[in-house]
Design a protein around this nucleic acid. Structure first.
Lengths: 173, 173
DNA sequence: CCTCCACTGACACGAGTGTTTCAGTAATGC
DNA sequence: GCATTACTGAAACACTCGTGTCAGTGGAGG
């Protein structure tokens, strides 16, 4: 039950980290940018770690909203790629990659388990989109793991190079 | 032309960041761990940024050594995956991902261009492994982009979950 | 009115940061 | 022998960091 002020500041902080990165964010510049103070952020979120956790949860909410809307059946991969490659989503996806990498380097702290959780989320969506007779086979597991790998690898490429056409033609296969 | 002491300390620092991460490394703990001092590191590498650049170049040397040895012709993808999935290479690859993410968030500083450079390195190797009649076509470009995406995505999965068998079967396709 | 409560401002604390200054030491080349 | 060069130690500088302390606001409920 976050207060109104808390969600308001969280939203502002979220907008801030989308452009400034989350890994080495620091309270004073963040507070100044969103028109608050370190005192208030600490009061509302308990500690910096609490704030980072809240921000990661906020980012995850965006991701889960997508996964909930993506539907099932054929064409999921294409629809997912459409979302992943949308220029408007680049800040979010860069943030996502940052959190992913961080959770591998530093398995403790607020990042813990982020990478693993996101793998499972996406695999589950791809699973739901598979035909019922493949879904529970080893081949089905391998197939959706491959689809996920393709999407993620293509995303890495796109974020680094920005060459949307080349990467798109690779995803189409 | 780095001095003997410089390469010796760089090697020690490289071993250190492989296990501690490179993103938030700090001079005093690093110096203490490798039996040196901040004074010496600064003297030899000019600044922290210089040290980080040297470390990134050192990591890249490992990567390029692989790419030089991988050969051409069919089976490149399988050979690359063999190398990527080797447990001994996990620290290096985690470091690699860290640098990749960082270079996207913070396009300036010592990380600059790391992500883009590594995409191009790998694409070039895959290109050399393609049959001569596909190599220069759009389809060839798309094909090797796809192969790279698959490898990178699979690596992300493996680093997060450690489930080598599932990911291997996905790479095999 | 008066109390309670969510929220905020100013400031200081102790620790950690990269970097600099000044002082050496040990070995090498002439 | 002597000067030059490569390297090293100790201490300080000027920060920034997250966090704690103490004092307030302002408004809502009794």
């Amino acid at each position: 039950m976050p207060s109104a002020r808390e969600t308001e500041l969280l939203e502002a902080a979220y907008r801030y980290v989308l452009t400034h990165g989350l890994a080495d964010v620091s309270l004073r510049p963040l507070a100044a940018a969103i028109g608050s103070s370190t005192r208030v952020l600490l009061y509302l979120f308990g500690s910096k770690e609490g704030l980072v956790k809240a921000l990661l949860a906020r980012a995850r909410a965006d991701e889960l909203a997508l996964l909930g809307d993506i539907g099932t059946g054929p064409g999921v991969v294409a629809r997912l790629w459409e979302w992943l490659s949308a220029p408007a989503h680049r800040p979010l996806l860069t943030l996502w990659l940052e959190a992913y990498a961080r959770s591998l380097v530093e398995p403790d702290g607020p990042w813990a388990g982020f990478a693993r959780a996101t793998v499972e989320d996406w695999l589950e969506v791809l699973r739901a989109a598979q035909p019922r007779d493949v879904r529970d086979t080893d081949a089905g597991l391998a197939a959706r793991t491959r689809e996920l790998a393709l999407l993620r690898g293509a995303l890495l490429d796109l974020l680094a190079t920005g060459e949307a056409e080349r990467v798109l033609s690779a995803v189409r296969g």
